[in-house]
Design a protein around this nucleic acid. Structure first.
Lengths: 238, 238
DNA sequence: ACAAAAGTGTTGGAACTACACCCATGT
DNA sequence: ACATGGGTGTAGTTCCAACACTTTTGT
């Protein structure tokens, strides 16, 4: 019996399993994507997401983190699983199934590391170079997911520095949705979440008047996560 | 150069890739899951999702459909990709990465095929047997996703017959969320989508008075799909 | 003084919740 | 006649979108 089962397993095709991560960043103005130059000349001029292969005894999410670190020095960021891409011909060299992840980071936090040590580079999502394989599909899906999540969670905070202003946050949301919001309604809505703590300091330099800095109330932020479903009566999820 | 690249590919570990589908059904009263008895004696008493392996030259979503058909005779249903499960030890026999899918079907549509020809069986989601490997995690994730989607899309229609009554639909939502809704508010909300067309006929037999049957306005339903993001001003998506 | 960005308040309409009674029919 | 589930309306509240002027300060 057990033998028959093992035979069944042995008869199956095995596949390479790749991990590809879409890293979003925000520089205060535009939404950016982190890409690397594929280190192989055949694909000259094409750029790639942060990609690598799954190793033995490694969970996919760990592999994705490891690869991101190896390629960029970025560590300890929240990577969320996005989608599996597995068309038989997606990688022309060999059959590969790719699990994609995405992350949000604050460009300023990593700018030095990335540009000095690694061959990664930020690109505006409006001016992307040619991407490897089906990486453009992955990016498209990631943007959809980012928008979706940004409507549900105050996920945008992840892309900003610890201290930020309301106008900065608004610019970020405008970059994500490619849409201008009314600033009065925007600030009311954001502040009504109760997740922001107003600081004494003002941001100087950017505007003449200067804008108040805020930081996220981390305790509330954590509680906030992963819950609210429109259909469900208030109080159901408490 | 090309050789170096091919070597790089060759050096990588390959994995078995499995597909596992979570099939939800509704029988008018309870939310159900379709499971099969794993055909191997070692796992006596444990049941399994609709699982199988990815073959050469087969896209994962096709494999998932094929497997579902082979195991149950179910065909042409919408399978949505759910999540990848890939912990190194999730399948104790051999390293396998599993891509999970989920689907919603109307139990009545397939009841005959399933029970007479195949070894699949419906289980109430409140009384599930022991499940193979990490299939319980998959089910948990699928229920979360189902609830999430049900708040955003009128996805519940998929689980009902073509013609159905408002009380039936309400029971379905109550089964999905495990929560009782106010029938006046429920019917107002559902009808306000404009997606339902009231028919002349009434459902007979279940209640004394009989309830009006409705069907989905397919044209509107399609338009409705995949869009509305709370944060975006009305009209933005038109 | 003026330009540039920050900050703030009101109003009308829509949508949501909570809630209770009558209707049609099979037994 | 009565029991069972089906169907409907209202009032108070909250939430949302639309909209324009004043404030601060660097030049």
């Amino acid at each position: 019996m057990i033998n028959r089962m093992l035979e069944q397993y042995r008869a199956q095709t095995k596949c390479l399993v790749a991990l590809d991560s879409i890293i979003f960043g925000f520089d205060g103005d535009e939404l950016k994507l982190l890409l690397v130059k594929r280190g192989v000349e055949v694909y000259d001029g094409t750029w790639s997401l942060m990609g690598g292969w799954l190793q033995d005894n490694e969970a996919p999410e760990h592999a994705a983190s490891r690869i991101l670190f190896e390629l960029t020095g970025i560590q300890d960021v929240y990577l969320e699983q996005l989608y599996v891409f597995g068309k038989p011909d997606r990688d022309p060299i060999e059959r590969t199934v790719s699990v994609s992840y995405f992350a949000l980071i604050n460009v300023a936090d990593y700018d030095d590391v990335i540009s000095h040590t690694y061959e990664a580079q930020w690109f505006s999502i409006h001016e992307l170079p040619t991407l490897l394989f089906d990486h453009a599909d992955m990016v498209k899906k990631a943007i959809e997911r980012l928008r979706y999540k940004a409507t549900q969670h105050p996920i945008g905070f992840e892309l900003l520095p610890d201290k930020f202003t309301i106008p900065q946050l608004q610019k970020l949301y405008e970059a994500i949705f490619d849409f201008k919001f009314d600033k009065r309604n925007f600030s009311r809505k954001i502040l009504s979440t109760g997740l922001l703590i107003k600081l004494e300091e003002k941001q100087k330099g950017f505007s003449k008047k200067g804008a108040y800095l805020y930081r996220v109330d981390n305790e509330k932020y954590v509680k906030f996560f992963d819950s609210f479903l429109n259909f469900i009566p208030n109080g159901f999820l408490d």
